[in-house]
Amino acid sequence: MAGLRLRIVTPHNQLLDDSVEMVVLPGSEGQLAVYPGHIPLVTTLQDGEIQAGKGAKERRFRVAGGWVKISSEQVIILAREAEALDKGRSTLAEELQ
């Protein structure tokens, strides 16, 4: 099955534009796992963590103030703030210090 195109975009940068196998999102009604072929869905996101899986690899992101548009082959996350959690320390935390 074809992968899922995941895009995470904020006003300041495009954090990710990559093909993944599955995504877990903090939807407004609870956690939401999205696989390719998902029914079209629009929902707002709670501030929280996104997990994107590709093979054995997993990447994590943090989002705040966002919404998501899901279609069968694409997930677009539009957020006010977002950052990657891959690198041990969070840049947002550094900024706050």
Binding site: E29, L41, V42, W67, R80
Partner: peptide, 25 residues
Amino acid sequence: ARQDLLWEPSEEAVFSKLIHHYVTS
């Protein structure tokens, strides 16, 4: 129109937030 779109929790609830976000952007 294509197949129906799912809204969570509801179309109006999502739109009220989404439109604000869209206009601001």
